[in-house]
Nucleic acid binder design. Structure first.
Length: 293
DNA sequence: CATAGATCCTGTATGC
DNA sequence: TGCATACAGGATCTAT
């Protein structure tokens, strides 16, 4: 469930704790956690041992930390249950500890904990991002996110409107705009009263602009509240949950009244998961059927 | 090329 | 009580 706001909370938490520290040792407890590091677990550990970490960067749901003196970075993705925790060395290992990074100062360890193992870490080369910065080559295909100062609204508007796919699927496509997952997609669509099954090609330019503004708005509000959490799976680097789930209008509210019109929120199957929407406020599901006829 | 669907994984909740 | 099934879903791979 960690989407952009949750990952940004983690980034901020890491920033003050790992920047400038030198890695002592890296222990990979589960090979799946480094499956995106093709050279394997021992190579992953070898590339980090003795290296000093720089600032913590983020694009969409990815985090990366460049290594001082190298054109490489350690890249992380939380998947849906990953946690990056800063814990004192004496804290007990939980059952889902996947990677442990210790530092030469013998202070807090950085632990990657991941119940469902969809997340992972890797070391990857850095390349130019085309705008004076750098990005790991393994995530060069990930688009800028809506909170990125270089996010180009009109470019994304054009890309959304060039596709026949359902608009919700486009929102979840990280090569169009990154950082949006199932929760914030549903919340953004609810805010602008669009049904997620509307084809991108059928939306007007103002509609897509309004949708992107809603995405930015809902993510910004979530960030202010420390992110969204439904269970103990998403936590910040200190193991604490956010509060934004109390502000949700659509996601996870099947059968509950819409906060605008009182109609019961509906849930439908979508891409092996769920979509939540107000059947009265969010019209437009029929246009696709009509177009086919 | 564009699009849609399947797949990885495990803890929790639910049904019989 | 025990077993089976459904569900959560981000990114990537495969199929059409």
């Amino acid at each position: 469930m960690p989407e952009l706001p949750e990952v940004e909370v983690v980034r901020r938490g890491l920033q003050g704790w790992v920047a400038g520290r030198t890695v002592s040792d890296v222990e990979v407890r589960h090979p799946r956690a480094v499956r995106r590091h093709p050279a394997g677990a021992s190579d992953f550990s070898d590339r980090l041992a003795g290296r000093t970490l720089r600032c913590v960067s983020r694009r969409g749901k990815y985090l990366w930390i460049p290594l001082v003196g190298e054109d490489e970075a350690v890249v992380g993705h939380l998947g849906m249950s990953g946690q990056l925790l800063l814990l004192p060395p004496e804290a007990p290992d939980g059952p889902h500890l996947r990677v442990r990074m210790t530092f030469t100062d013998e202070g807090r360890e950085l632990r990657f904990v991941d119940q469902r193992t969809f997340g992972g870490l890797a070391v990857a080369p850095l390349a130019s991002d085309g705008a004076g910065g750098q990005v790991p080559v393994t995530i060069a295909h990930i688009a800028r996110d809506p909170l990125d100062p270089l996010f180009d609204d009109e470019l994304v508007v054009a890309r959304v409107r060039s596709r026949d796919s359902e608009v919700k699927r486009i929102l979840l496509d990280q090569t169009v705009a990154s950082g949006i997952g199932n929760i914030y997609a549903d919340e953004s669509l609810w805010r602008v009263r669009l049904h997620g099954s509307r084809p991108g090609r059928g939306l007007s330019r103002p509609q897509v602009r309004e949708l992107l503004a809603a995405v930015r708005e809902v993510m910004g509000e979530a960030l202010e509240q420390g992110g969204t959490s439904f269970d103990a799976l998403y936590v910040n680097v200190n193991g604490e949950s956010g509060y934004f789930d109390r502000s949700l209008h659509a996601y996870g509210r099947e059968g509950e009244p819409c906060d605008r019109c009182g109609t019961a929120i509906r849930r439908i199957a979508f891409m092996n998961r769920s979509s939540y929407f107000c059947p009265r406020c969010q019209r437009g599901a029929r246009s696709r059927v009509r177009d086919r006829g």
